[in-house]
Design a protein around this nucleic acid. Structure first.
Length: 251
DNA sequence: CACCCGATGCAT
DNA sequence: TGCATCGGGTGC
C-alpha cells in the first residue's frame, strides 16, 4: 500500500533532508511551476549557516515577465529585477513598504524574467527559531499556523533578506534549498493578492483548506475595483471567497 | 530631483 | 480600517 499524504499534513522528518529539486524543475512556465511548488519544502540555514528553518509551501503566486503588467520585470530589466532575467532556480528578493522583504523563485528560461512569489507555508522544522524571528518584529504572540502566513512573514521566518537575493537554490553548497516534500493534491487558484494590474488573472495558487493560507482582502486605497466576480470576504470568513476552481465566481 | 505608491503586516 | 516607512521608477 502506498501511503498517501493528506492535504495540510506536515511532512515526515525525513522529508526535510535529501537532494534538492533540480534546475529543470524551475525552468518551466511559472504557471506550471507555481502549483507544483505547493507541498514542497524550502529550507534555509543549517549546520554551517546556523539553525535551519524549513517551510512547507502552501500558497504561491505566478508572475510572468514581459506579458504580465503586475510583474516587477514588466517594464524591463533594472538593477533590482536583474536576477529575474537570469537563470531559473535563483531567488529574487525585493523590499516593500519600507520594511518588508519578500522572496520569489525565478522560473522559465534566461531573459524571460518570470518568477513565483512564495506567499505562505507551514513551518516544519526550526519552529523555535522561526517564532523568535517573528517575535522580534511584533508585540503580540503569533500562532503556529500564522508563523509563515504572508510573503513577508515567510521571508522573515526563513531569515532571508537582501543577502539572499540571487542565491542559487540548485547549488550544492547553497544555504537555501528546495526539497521535494509531498506535492499537494488539492490545489485551488484565484486572483493574486494586492495587485492592481492584471487583477483578473487567477495566478495565485494555494492548498485547499490550509490554515496557513492568507485570507483574501481587497485593496484599501483608491478603491481598486475587485477582480471581476470576486466579492469582499464576509466578516468572520477566513478562507478566501474566490476559492473557486478557476478563480472566478459564477454570476 | 521631486513625487508617488507599492506583490504588507500590525494594531486599532 | 488606518498607518508605518523607504526605495524604486517615472515623470517633470
Amino acid at each position: 500500500m502506498t501511503p498517501v499524504a493528506r492535504t495540510g499534513e506536515p511532512p515526515d522528518a525525513g522529508e526535510v533532508a535529501g537532494p534538492a529539486l533540480p534546475r529543470s524543475f524551475f525552468a518551466r512556465d511559472p504557471l506550471d511551476v507555481a502549483p507544483d511548488l505547493l507541498g514542497r519544502v524550502l529550507v534555509a540555514g543549517g549546520p554551517d549557516a546556523g539553525a535551519a528553518v524549513a517551510v512547507r509551501l502552501t500558497e504561491v503566486e505566478a508572475y510572468r515577465g514581459a506579458d504580465d503588467p503586475a510583474s516587477h520585470a514588466f517594464r524591463g530589466r533594472t538593477r533590482r529585477t536583474a536576477v529575474m532575467f537570469g537563470p531559473a532556480g535563483h531567488l529574487y528578493l525585493y523590499f516593500v513598504y519600507g520594511m518588508h522583504w519578500c522572496v520569489n523563485v525565478v522560473t522559465g528560461w534566461d531573459g524571460e524574467a518570470s518568477a513565483v512569489l512564495l506567499r505562505a507555508g507551514r513551518v516544519v522544522a526550526g519552529a523555535d527559531v522561526a517564532a523568535a524571528r517573528r517575535a522580534a518584529r511584533r508585540r503580540t504572540a503569533v500562532t503556529a499556523g500564522a508563523l509563515a502566513r504572508g510573503p513577508a512573514a515567510l521571508t522573515t521566518v526563513l531569515g532571508l533578506d537582501a543577502g539572499a537575493d540571487g542565491a542559487d537554490l540548485c547549488a550544492a553548497d547553497s544555504a537555501v534549498r528546495l526539497l521535494p516534500g509531498v506535492p499537494a493534491t488539492a490545489v485551488r487558484s484565484g486572483p493574486r493578492v494586492g495587485v492592481s494590474a492584471a487583477a483578473d488573472r487567477p495566478w495565485r495558487f494555494w492548498v485547499d483548506g490550509d490554515p496557513t493560507v492568507t485570507a483574501y482582502r481587497a485593496g484599501t486605497r483608491a478603491q481598486r475595483r475587485p477582480p471581476a466576480g470576486v466579492t469582499r470576504a464576509a466578516p468572520g470568513l477566513r478562507e478566501p471567497l474566490d476559492a473557486v476552481g478557476d478563480g472566478r465566481m459564477e454570476g
